[in-house]
C-alpha cells in the first residue's frame, strides 16, 4: 500500500465506523473516534469495561492520523513558519529549522492541532502497528454478511416482481507451509439454488450496489442445497485446483525433513546405545523432542481458512 492507498483506506474505515472528522488534508485526518472505533483502536479495555458496567457516557479519544508523513511535516513546518515570523521567507529551510528549534526551547506549540488538547499523533505507514490495528478492526467488523443486490432500475410496474437467488460467498486464504510460507486468496460464490460455483466472486460483488435491506418487488427463489453442501462444493473446487499445482517446494521440504531426521538419528542412536541404563530415558526424551521440533519446523502442508463470508441475494436464478 502506498500513501495514497492508505489514505483512501483510512478514510473509508473512518466513515464506515461513524468517526467524526474534524479536519483533513490529503496527508492526514484529525478525528474524534466513534465508540466502536475507539474500542478497537485505543487499547483501553479497562476503560471500556468500566463504561459497559456503569453505563457511563463514553468519552472517546481524538487522534491525528497522518497518512503521508513527509507531506504532512512539510505542510506543518510551512504553516508554523508563516504567522509568527513573516520576515522569514517561506521555503528558506534553515530559517524554518532555526525557528523550530527556538520554538522548542521557548515552548511554542507550532501545530494548530495542539492548541487545545494534546492529540496523539499516529503515523500510518504500511507495517505500522496502528494500521495493523485498523486492518484487524476491519476484519472483525466485516466477517459475516447478508446483503441484497439493489435493482438496476426501479421497476415501474408495482406488481412486477424480480426473482433473486441466494449465493454463499466465501473468501478463502490458502497457506502453503513448511519452514517457509506463501499464500493465495481464492473467492468463491456458490448458488444455493443450483449449486453453480463461480470463482473471483468477490470482484463480481464489487460491481453491484448492495444493500442490507430486501428491496421492494423482489422475491427470492427457494434454496435447493444447504450451506454445508455449498461449502463442500467450494472446497472441492479449490481442492481440484490445488491438485494441479507444482509441489516441488513440498518435495524439497520433505527432503530437508528427512535429512534432518537422519542427522539426529545418527547422533542420538549411538548416544542412547552407549549410555548408562539410568541416563537412557532422558536422552531418549531429548531425541524425541528434537524429532518433534524438526517435524514442526519442516513438515509441508496446505491449510485453508476463511477471511470472511456471507449470504448474497443476486438478481436472477444462478
Amino acid at each position: 500500500m502506498n500513501e495514497r492507498q492508505i489514505h483512501k483506506f483510512v478514510g473509508r474505515y473512518l466513515e464506515a465506523t461513524d468517526c467524526q472528522i474534524i479536519e483533513k488534508s490529503p496527508a492526514h485526518y484529525h478525528v474524534k473516534l466513534s465508540p466502536r472505533a475507539d474500542r478497537d483502536l485505543t487499547n483501553r479495555p479497562f476503560y471500556w469495561s468500566f463504561v459497559d458496567r456503569t453505563g457511563a457516557d463514553p468519552e472517546t479519544m481524538s487522534m491525528l492520523l497522518v497518512t503521508d508523513k513527509a507531506k504532512y511535516d512539510d505542510a506543518a513546518a510551512a504553516k508554523a513558519a508563516q504567522p509568527p515570523a513573516p520576515a522569514a521567507a517561506p521555503g528558506s529551510g534553515s530559517g524554518n529549522s532555526a525557528d523550530a528549534a527556538f520554538g522548542r526551547s521557548f515552548g511554542y506549540l507550532n501545530n494548530a492541532a495542539n492548541l487545545n488538547v494534546r492529540v496523539p499523533r499516529e503515523d500510518l505507514h504500511y507495517g505500522s502497528r496502528r494500521l495493523e490495528q485498523l486492518f484487524q478492526s476491519a476484519k472483525i467488523g466485516g466477517n459475516y454478511l447478508c446483503l441484497f443486490q439493489e435493482p438496476e432500475k426501479r421497476t415501474s410496474h408495482p406488481l412486477h416482481s424480480t426473482a433473486y437467488s441466494a449465493w454463499l460467498g466465501v473468501n478463502m486464504k490458502v497457506e502453503f507451509l513448511c519452514d517457509m510460507k506463501r499464500e493465495e486468496i481464492h473467492s468463491f460464490g456458490i448458488s444455493l439454488a443450483t449449486g453453480q460455483c463461480l470463482e473471483q466472486f468477490s470482484d463480481r460483488l464489487l460491481q453491484q450496489r448492495m444493500t442490507p435491506k430486501l428491496p421492494p418487488n423482489v422475491h427470492t427463489a427457494k434454496n435447493a442445497i444447504t450451506l454445508n453442501k455449498a461449502a463442500s462444493i467450494a472446497e472441492g473446487t479449490l481442492e481440484r485446483k490445488l491438485r494441479t499445482y507444482d509441489y516441488s517446494w513440498a518435495d524439497a521440504a520433505s527432503k530437508r525433513l528427512d535429512e534432518e531426521l537422519s542427522t539426529v538419528r545418527h547422533y542420538y542412536e549411538p548416544l542412547i546405545e552407549g549410555a548408562e541404563e539410568e541416563n537412557r530415558a532422558p536422552i531418549a526424551e531429548q531425541y524425541e523432542r528434537r524429532q518433534e521440533e524438526i517435524r514442526w519446523q519442516y513438515e509441508p502442508r496446505v491449510s485453508v481458512s476463511a477471511i470472511n463470508c456471507g449470504i448474497f441475494y443476486l438478481q436472477g436464478i444462478g
Binding site: Y13, A16, A138, G142, N143, I185, I307, N308
Partner: peptide
C-alpha cells in the same frame, strides 16, 4: 456485519 468493512478486510 458491515459491507464496507467486509471490503476493507479483503
Amino acid at each position: 456485519d458491515d459491507w464496507t468493512m467486509y471490503q476493507l478486510a479483503v
